[in-house]
Amino acid sequence: MNGSKQKSAYDRMVKRVSPKSEKPKSLCKAFFVGGLICAIGQGLKDIGVYALGLDLEDASLFCSFCLIFLSALLTGLGVYDKIGKFAGAGSIVPITGFANSIVSPAMEFKREGFVTGVGAKMFQVAGPVLVYGITSSVLAGVLAHILSLLGR
């Protein structure tokens, strides 16, 4: 029996039979829900600036706090996973998705204790984002510094 030939023939069969994700539909859903979350964020920022009299930087922080809180609350109420099922990347990419990725394992692993469960597993999903996010920001900072020295 020719193993690899059989396997690639099977791969083609699997590809033909497996249902495809409906890309245009998924993209539209992601675009509108993601856009809606960002619009809410902008609204919160405007509240910060115009109603609370914060400067731009503090208003941005206020906006992030509110969004994180709302996402954590909706995760706890069991709503955010339903939004995510509908919107896909639209609700994963904004900061609310990041909050959801930390709150959901914290909830899931509470039964294994606060140290060995919640503490150890909380960054199970978000961990890689933090590691590579911080690493790349350090590298970008170093690069920016070198460029600024060269440009002087």
């Binding site: 497996s18 249902p19 495809k20 994700s21 998924s26 995760t75 706890g76 069991g78 955010y80 996973d81 339903k82 939004i83 995510g84 099922k85 919107a87 896909g88 609700s91 994963i92 998705g97 959801n100 990725s101 709150v103 959901s104 394992p105 909830m107 899931e108 692993f109 199970q124 999903v125």
Partner: peptide, 11 residues
């Protein structure tokens, strides 16, 4: 993944 994580599954 954790149950409450808002991810999508392929069909």
């Amino acid at each position: 993944f954790p149950l409450e994580l808002g991810n999508q599954r392929p069909p």
